[in-house]
């Protein structure tokens, strides 16, 4: 191949009827032509970004309603509209928190609850990933397992509690298992469905280029479902916090669920508020961490 024809090849706009001279002339303009051909997405920095896309506005906007609620709460509870036995003031809740912290139980309760959620979530999500992958990839496993798992999913969470307590006692095991059950199903359901719906054309292309089995899974199917897996994990984490309270309400001597139950029995409405607020904060905090990972994963894999 001559140099001239190679130049024509490399530009992708080959000219056949022209002589080498024309190719040489052409090569000067091809970079522009090639640049025009690409449909590069618009640069966000080029034009003015809208207010709702700015980070500070999003943080401020999200905090607006909680702050307004806090102000309203403060006003209602101090104005005497509602008796303090029904609605404690923010200050009372704060003092309850300080009191519990000084006794050393607040940190302990938060820690033990978070630990239960994380362990249960880890086991449940891992099992959900594994079974979701098996059911999503194999038609046979789908036929054999899906109806049974669908049936187990239909059992309400609280129905497991007496059975788990009988089998595993009232220690950590029964609670962690209940949380794992809660985390398992969102992951299993979403991952199996996502794997079944991976673009058939991409899979066929992968096979046509010699991929099969584990290599096909790692190269085509797994990357294709990474965004789905992350949103499944997010859902599972939320579900884990729900199941935590179910587990701790029934039989426990520590944790935020226990704090709720104990305070309810003793009429400590300030501590009930504290527990609810802490659950909201912890749930949102852990969710935000996974959401950050999810956003990165969508940028990277989708």
């Amino acid at each position: 191949m001559t140099d001239a024809s190679h130049a024509a090849l490399s530009t992708g706009a080959a000219i056949h009827d022209g002589a080498a001279v024309r190719v040489a002339v052409n090569s000067g303009t091809t970079s522009i032509a090639a640049g025009r051909e690409a449909s590069v997405p618009p640069e966000p920095s080029g034009e003015r970004r809208r207010l709702v896309d700015r980070r500070w506005f999003r943080i401020l906007g999200g905090a607006l309603i909680p702050l307004a609620l806090l102000a309203l709460w403060q006003w209602v509870s101090t104005s005497g509209l509602v008796p303090l036995s029904q609605l404690p003031s923010p200050e009372m809740v704060w003092l309850a928190a300080v009191d519990l912290a000084q006794r050393g139980v607040l940190g302990l309760y938060v820690a033990i609850s978070t630990q239960r959620v994380f362990i249960g979530f880890a086991f449940g999500a891992a099992a959900g990933l594994a079974l979701g992958a098996i059911v999503g990839l194999s038609r046979l496993a789908d036929v054999l397992l899906a109806p049974t798992l669908g049936g187990i999913r239909a059992v309400p969470s609280l129905a497991w509690v007496p059975l788990l307590i009988l089998w595993f006692g009232i220690g950590e095991d029964s609670k962690v298992i209940l949380i794992a059950i809660g985390a398992f199903f969102p992951v299993y359901t979403i991952v199996s469905a996502a794997l079944r719906h991976v673009d058939r054309q991409l899979i066929e292309a992968g096979r046509a280029f010699g991929l099969h089995g584990l290599a096909l899974f790692a190269t085509v199917q797994l990357p294709a479902v990474v965004p789905s897996v992350l949103s499944a994990l997010r859902l599972a984490l939320a579900q884990a916090w729900l199941f935590l309270v179910a587990a701790e309400l029934i039989a426990s001597s520590m944790g935020l669920g226990f704090l709720l139950l104990d305070s309810g029995q003793n009429g400590r409405i300030d501590r009930i508020f504290l527990a609810i607020i802490l659950l909201a904060l912890l749930g949102k905090l852990t969710d935000s961490v996974v959401a950050l990972i999810e956003r990165w994963a969508i940028r990277r894999w989708a």
Binding site: Q201, L202, E204, A205, A208, F209, T219, V220, P223, A224, V226, R300, W301, A302
Partner: peptide, 12 residues
């Protein structure tokens, strides 16, 4: 080797 009607590229 096959060239399909659609590019069928891995988007990631």
């Amino acid at each position: 080797a096959v060239g399909f009607q659609e590019p069928r590229l891995l988007p990631w």
